[in-house]
């Protein structure tokens, strides 16, 4: 962000008419952009908490009507969905932790002058950024490794990411050499130096990598689509996609599954295809919306380093 520009000209109203018209239109156009980006989320949210018979007919447009939160309770009662939530959380946590640790360790090791064949192995890892065998060979490989219909199929292929390794290596190189040397004189071995000295020092870059890895794991859809046929391993993203495509058959499932077919239960609270879809959407999108504004600076840092490197 450029904060410096505003500080210089304090003398205000010397804008010509043309400049003012431009200024006016800029505000309008950017307000529209912002609206287009915010409204869909808001629209889905208010629908998910409004009376279901109204939301199904598209009556809820600007504010919630007859607010209730039963949708969220009912939707989490669908066994498939709760299971998918567990899979998504598990892969995000496990995947992120391993990715961060492995990238940090490899990045650090590739700065060790003593490492045998250091340059060669570094290139061996980095070159993989530039090619890709394609979906089918990858699928066949995963099949041969018994990683289809296997939770670790979400994890192992993505834990060593050359780009993150490069980021870590660059960061370690920017730290003072004396840190490692001092530890070495005190008799610390390679691993001790990494865990005791380097890890705390390179925390900022690890935070950036963690955010990117977590978002990638949470959002991942393609690997479930290709690798998994066992519904126990479906992720939230995948289940949501299925729900959108078969929402109508779903309604019956949910209203029956909740046990009592209470006829008196008001129409407002009976699940509809729309209500399920929108509620699940909000559940899937919430972690991102919560995480993003807080960690925005890490994201921005990530793209900037990427731009310099790549």
């Amino acid at each position: 962000m450029s904060g410096s520009r505003q500080k210089t000209p304090k003398r205000k109203m010397q804008m010509s008419l043309g400049d003012r018209i431009i200024s006016f239109f800029t505000y309008i156009v950017y307000s529209i952009f912002a609206f287009v980006c915010v409204y869909p989320f808001y629209y889905i949210f208010i629908n998910s908490i409004s009376a279901n018979n109204l939301s199904e007919k598209g009556k809820v447009l600007f504010w919630p009507m007859q607010v209730h939160f039963t949708n969220y309770i009912n939707v989490l009662k669908i066994p498939d969905l709760f299971n998918a939530l567990k899979v998504s959380v598990a892969r995000t946590v496990v995947g992120t932790v391993l990715t961060v640790l492995f990238s940090a360790f490899l990045g650090y090791m590739f700065t060790r002058e003593t490492l045998w064949g250091r340059k060669f192995w570094y290139r061996f890892v980095v070159v993989t950024m530039y090619f890709n065998a394609g979906i089918i060979p990858w699928f066949i490989t995963m099949m041969n490794l018994r990683l289809t219909n296997n939770f670790w199929g979400y994890i192992w292929p993505v834990v060593v990411q050359p780009f993150y390794v490069v980021l870590c290596k660059t960061f370690v190189e920017s730290t003072p050499k004396e840190l490692q040397e001092a530890a070495e004189i005190d008799g610390a071995g390679t691993l001790t130096i990494f865990f005791r000295v380097m890890l705390p020092v390179i925390k900022p870059i690890l935070a950036t990598i963690a955010i990117f890895a977590a978002v990638a794991q949470w959002n991942s859809f393609q690997d479930t689509l290709i690798l998994m046929t066992d519904s126990k391993l479906f992720t939230l993203q995948f289940v949501l996609y299925q729900y959108i495509n078969q929402a109508n058959s779903l309604r019956g499932l949910i209203n029956n599954a909740s046990g009592t077919v209470d006829i008196a239960a008001s129409l407002a609270k009976a699940q509809t295809a729309t209500s399920i879809r929108m509620t699940v959407t909000i559940i899937v999108v919430t972690p991102i919306i919560l995480v993003y504004p807080i960690f925005q600076r890490f994201f921005v840092k990530g793209i900037m380093i990427g731009a310099v490197k790549g």
């Binding site: 869909p40 989320f41 889905i44 949470w218 959002n219 991942s220 859809f221 993203q237 995948f238 949501l240 996609y241 959108i244 879809r277 699940v280 959407t281 899937v284 999108v285």
Partner: peptide, 8 residues
């Protein structure tokens, strides 16, 4: 994700 975009 694109799935969410599609849902929107």
């Amino acid at each position: 994700s694109w799935v969410l975009v599609y849902s929107i």
